[in-house]
Design a protein around this nucleic acid. Sequence first.
DNA 1: CATTTTCAGTCCGAAATCGCACGGTGGCGG
DNA 2: CCGCCACCGTGCGATTTCGGACTGAAAATG
Lengths: 248, 248
Amino acid sequence: MALADQPPPILRNRLLMTLPPEEFARLWPQLEPVELPLRKVFQEPGKPLTSVYFPETGWFSILAYMEDGDAAEVGLVGREGMLGLPVLLGGDTEDLEGMVQAPGTALRMDAGAFREELQFLPAFRTLLLRYALVHHGQVARTAACNGRHQLEQRLARWLLMAHDRADGGEFTMTHEFMSMMLGVRRAGVTVAAGQLSKAGFIRYKGGHIEVTDRPGLESVTCECYGVVRRACDALLGQAATARDVYRR
Amino acid sequence: MALADQPPPILRNRLLMTLPPEEFARLWPQLEPVELPLRKVFQEPGKPLTSVYFPETGWFSILAYMEDGDAAEVGLVGREGMLGLPVLLGGDTEDLEGMVQAPGTALRMDAGAFREELQFLPAFRTLLLRYALVHHGQVARTAACNGRHQLEQRLARWLLMAHDRADGGEFTMTHEFMSMMLGVRRAGVTVAAGQLSKAGFIRYKGGHIEVTDRPGLESVTCECYGVVRRACDALLGQAATARDVYRR
DNA sequence: CATTTTCAGTCCGAAATCGCACGGTGGCGG
DNA sequence: CCGCCACCGTGCGATTTCGGACTGAAAATG
């Protein structure tokens, strides 16, 4: 069922929220709410792109696959962004994968319609291109951060980024999965997470993580978190303060 | 002096070569040849972007700066690309740095004029957006490659990418600089380069490196080289074969 | 030609991480 | 209530890389 038939729900995707009303009105009927089930893959390497997604709650990991089957996380996409940038930039396939890391909902749009509509939505197009730039900056920072910074710093960064995109202070995540995202051993994450836990910054119980002290985490992470965060805030901050963005 | 006053030289930038004649004709008078002196910085973090550059010979390293002053290379831009993607995507400043890693020449264009002209050059715009996607893929691969793959593999990859963008089989490069690009110790590069040298893949003498066996290098590098190379070939291959692209 | 600087090769102990493996714990289904 | 299984904590030797330093050779400098 198209959203046009419904009273407007609370819109949470920050890109869409930033649009001028007339452009949003045009876009609105073409957006379809979809569920984002945990671990589902919405964008497979090599396959044609049929849709773009604007997360409302929950978020995606953007993964690059190695030939040994390992996946490396190169970026995150939550309600500050959009999944399917290649469609915007004129690619027909994707070689990265988008996997749901935290379940939730998104607004889906057909890739063809998206391409079509962009002609008539200059503000949308401009905004998305700037988002592509911000996302590019995120990936570039990840490249720089990987291999230079210590595991504990990178884990703290990852937790902060995840927390920014989570709805509450809490989310489902095992050491095993974090180790895959960070490209390290599971045991390594256990040790690093143990430090953070001992310091009182986080708490976990059976595949559930709760961030209890953001400033604490920020004090142990590397600068890479702040660099990416500020770039993102600068893009979206025109319409709302960071407080509105990341805390309900 | 503008290029319009001169007989057309041999154009070597692959993006520009791919343009349809009528669009190129419009662009041509606005391109100004500039030298790319070794190590010169053409795009400084935080500063407004005044120009975009299309390398003809030589190439840039794209660097992310850490707060300790270290620089991490996140991508390369040679004659297959363009320096100044943020201008295309609507950013006014850059937070990455473009440093000349191999000296040569480029065609410069004013950023404002570039933005203006894009409205009238649809093929150019489309091509550049696709290039932005390819470059994004390169950075994403670098993120995945850093920290997962061994130094020797990454060094081989770097040498191959540099060789692709170099004019001959030879280029100026010290262990010291490669270590900075790869984010490892200089001594580490010496050891890894020693392996490659012993295997007969490369040869060096006093800050000069010569690639003597490309297939050999390709046999020891990780898949990351091929993944990025193929994406780039796919973008530019419409107009020329890979042979024309990378070997004079 | 003598001096200085740059570059490459090597060695050391230390740190981080790896790969593997074992044991404990707690939730959940039978 | 019990057993299973996902998850977490931990230990150990091996490997890679680090940080620092020293040396000789080659190139640049004066």
